[in-house]
């Protein structure tokens, strides 16, 4: 790949790693995984269920907060502080900057999730003293969670390429909530009538589909995840992310930097 994209990505990663706020969030997520053990002990027989449910939910929520938190600052902060000027006056293309930024953040999120996941597995190990075969599905759930993060952070990047950080955060979080009900939204759309049906269907298909990426409860019940779903979700996340990044590139490519 393009060397400049990689340099920008690694600098973005370095920035995130040196940001102290991040550590607080990760610490909090780990704490919650630990708390899951306590809650689990109260609800006898379903300790494992509670640990997986609560642990994965914590990973997912804190990860989303981190993804939005860093995602919105990626571009807008560089514009506000004018750090972008000295980058773009070099042989760096604007799309290279956007793609590099995105990859850097994606890397950060993967590493973050890794640490948070350690907390969940630690809690599981504490409960059962050894890993069960079905625990592998927890890995799949975590993989899906990472896919969610990638989509969210691409969206945050897209929004921050044309709007203020605060608004971008609101947009991104709203889409996260709406996207979690994407399947229901498509259900609503099929029930709509006439012209509004096309509109509703279009909107329902444009909203990121987080429903299929959330398998926490079925994993907690040790239900296997079909291989096809893993494949489709991976492809879907890749396409959706690419779409959002392309959108960000298109906007950014024509933007006047104040």
């Amino acid at each position: 790949m393009n060397a400049r994209v990689i340099h920008i990505a690694s600098n973005t990663f370095r920035e995130a790693v040196r940001d102290r706020v991040l550590y607080n969030l990760i610490a909090f997520a780990l704490l919650l995984s630990g708390a899951a053990i306590l809650v689990g002990q109260i609800s006898i027989e379903i300790e494992k269920l509670v640990v997986i449910n609560l642990g994965l939910t914590a990973v997912s929520l804190f990860g989303v907060v981190i993804a939005i938190f860093i995602g919105i600052g990626l571009v807008s902060k560089e514009i506000d502080r004018r750090t972008l000027y000295t980058v773009l006056s070099r042989p760096v293309r604007r799309w290279e900057f956007i793609v590099g930024k995105f990859l850097g953040l994606a890397g950060t999120l993967v590493v973050n999730t890794f640490f948070m996941a350690m907390g969940v597995f630690g809690a599981l190990l504490y409960l059962a003293h050894h890993f069960h075969k079905a625990d592998a599905w927890v890995l799949v759930a975590l993989y899906f969670i990472i896919l969610q993060f990638l989509i969210i952070c691409a969206l945050a990047l897209l929004f921050s390429s044309f709007s203020s950080p605060l608004l971008s955060a609101v947009f991104a979080f709203a889409l996260f909530v709406i996207g979690s009900f994407a399947e229901d939204l498509r259900g609503f759309a099929t029930m709509a009538q006439g012209g509004s049906r096309w509109l509703a269907t279009g909107a329902a298909y444009l909203v990121p589909n987080f429903s299929a990426l959330n398998v926490i409860s079925s994993v907690a019940h040790e239900q296997p995840i079909p291989g096809h779903l893993i494949l489709y979700n991976t492809l879907y996340a890749a396409l959706y992310t690419a779409m959002a990044v392309c959108g960000a590139v298109l906007i950014f490519e024509h933007r006047n930097l104040k």
Partner: peptide, 16 residues
């Protein structure tokens, strides 16, 4: 671009 050097007004850099 490789032949250009640019110093912006009141420059600010990645402070980390």
């Amino acid at each position: 671009k490789a032949q250009i050097g640019f110093l912006p007004e009141q420059p600010y850099f990645y402070d980390y």
